[in-house]
Amino acid sequence: MGKKSVFEYESNMEEIHSNVLQNVLAEVSSYQKQNYTQAEVLKALRSENLSIEGLKALLSPVASEFLEELAFKARMLTKRHFGNSITLFTPLYLSNYCESKCVYCGFQKGNAIARSKLSEIEIRAEMKAIADTGLQEVLLLTGEGREHASVEYIARACKIAKEYFKVVGVEVYVMNVDEYELLHKNGCEFVTIYQETYNANKYEKIHIFGEKRVFPYRFNGQERALKAGMRGVGFGALLGIDEFEKDALATALHAYFLQKAYPHTELSLSAPRLRPILGNRKISPKDVTEARFLQVLCAYRIFLPFANIVVSTRERAEFRDKIIDIVATKISAGVSVGIGEHSGEKKGDEQFEISDHRSVDEILTMLKSSNLQAVMSDSIYVG
């Protein structure tokens, strides 16, 4: 018996009626990136409101010749809508157990790493250590799998997090609406999901088994989170898995079409590049150079001027320092991607290698020297 199709739902997975996936895949399938001209790029740069066709032009290879112009317009829009503010947060890994096998991920089932899961006492210790740095926003993460990190476990972690932080988000396995409702009831406001790649054929090859293998269930995760009352959702593709221009286009359109259906949604776009993992140090982001990476981020900003753009510690410090003055509005600080490192010794291995190891104080110093304002929280909690 062969493997199930990546479009075949498991019995426990909730299906919702949505045309967003169809719309995104239709636009991506028609994208011929080599066909765009310099004139089309210049037209897109001069437009007041960037169309989907203009976005395609700005992501095309020929647009790389206009990186300075892209950066200039992106910076102008960033300053217009966000001023000099940069929001800071940090991820907290609750568990690195995983029931899925995804070839690019250090947490994948079967990979020989040290596995661990934080107890409630350890969660509190980690959160206190993070809160003591001054951060007021935390992103909770787990591996792909409910066996060691149930929905109830994650909900309890969210409730504890609200004791220490003003803003709580999650980046965990995708859930049904009622499960997201439980997280929201316990203090979670944001859900981030990486589709990894929007090429279903490539997706099938690199997601060998597990719940994450079901392509449309993952794709519709943000919409189910919004149906559950979440304030905002985040999107991202892991650039370098497939043709990055197409994955970047799909990421932006995924956010765009979903906001048209849910106009008050707060959007966040991330654009992580492949990084080496334990058990596979040869993983690299193919042809996603820093210049082309910046091109993607600038295209995101011009197409979705109000969206947060997040750049993680996967990128080197010098690069992050440069792009926060152009396009990024949210960055991580004081990051540990292992289990239990914030409050003591690491008890579980990391998901991937990071490049920027600076502490929160070091990030704050950098922002001050760049005349940028650190924002620890964008909300006031009224109990």
Rank of each mutant, 00 (worst) to 15 (best):
T251H: 04
L269Y: 07
V172F: 02
E245H: 14
H184A: 11
K227F: 10
A261W: 00
R273V: 15
E243C: 11
P216H: 10
L226F: 04
G232D: 01
N176A: 04
T192A: 08
Y203R: 11
P263R: 09
E245F: 06
H184N: 14
E243P: 00
L182V: 07
Y203D: 02
L258R: 10
H184D: 00
L182D: 04
Y262F: 15
L258D: 08
E211K: 15
E196N: 03
Y198I: 08
P272W: 13
Y203I: 05
P276Q: 11
L238F: 13
L183F: 14
P216V: 13
N199R: 12
F215S: 01
M175H: 11
Y180C: 05
V177C: 01
L258T: 15
G236A: 13
F215I: 02
K212D: 00
I206A: 03
A252V: 15
R224T: 10
D247V: 03
D178M: 00
A225I: 01
D178I: 06
G240R: 14
Y180L: 05
R218A: 01
K227I: 11
T197N: 10
G234D: 05
A200K: 15
E204C: 02
D247E: 07
A252C: 13
L253Y: 12
C188L: 05
L258W: 09
C188T: 10
K260S: 09
V172R: 09
I208Q: 09
K205Y: 04
G210M: 07
G221F: 01
E266W: 09
A248H: 08
V177N: 01
S270I: 05
K246S: 13
A250I: 13
K227W: 03
E266M: 08
T265A: 13
R273Y: 11
D242M: 03
A250G: 02
V233W: 04
V174A: 05
L249P: 00
Y194W: 08
G232W: 03
L249A: 03
A225R: 12
V191S: 10
G187D: 08
F257W: 09
L238S: 11
C188G: 02
G187C: 07
V233L: 03
V177A: 01
I241D: 01
P276G: 09
E196G: 02
L238T: 13
N201G: 04
E223W: 08
H184T: 11
Y203F: 14
N176W: 08
P263H: 12
P272S: 09
H254A: 04
Y203A: 08
F219T: 05
E245K: 14
F257D: 08
G221D: 03
K260L: 12
V233C: 12
A271G: 04
E211A: 09
P216M: 04
S270D: 01
E266L: 11
A255I: 05
P263I: 10
T192L: 14
F215Y: 15
K260Y: 02
V174D: 05
T251Q: 09
E196I: 04
Y180S: 06
T251V: 12
Q195S: 03
G234F: 12
A237R: 07
K205N: 13
L253M: 06
L182Q: 14
K202Y: 09
Y262N: 13
L183C: 03
K246E: 06
E196W: 05
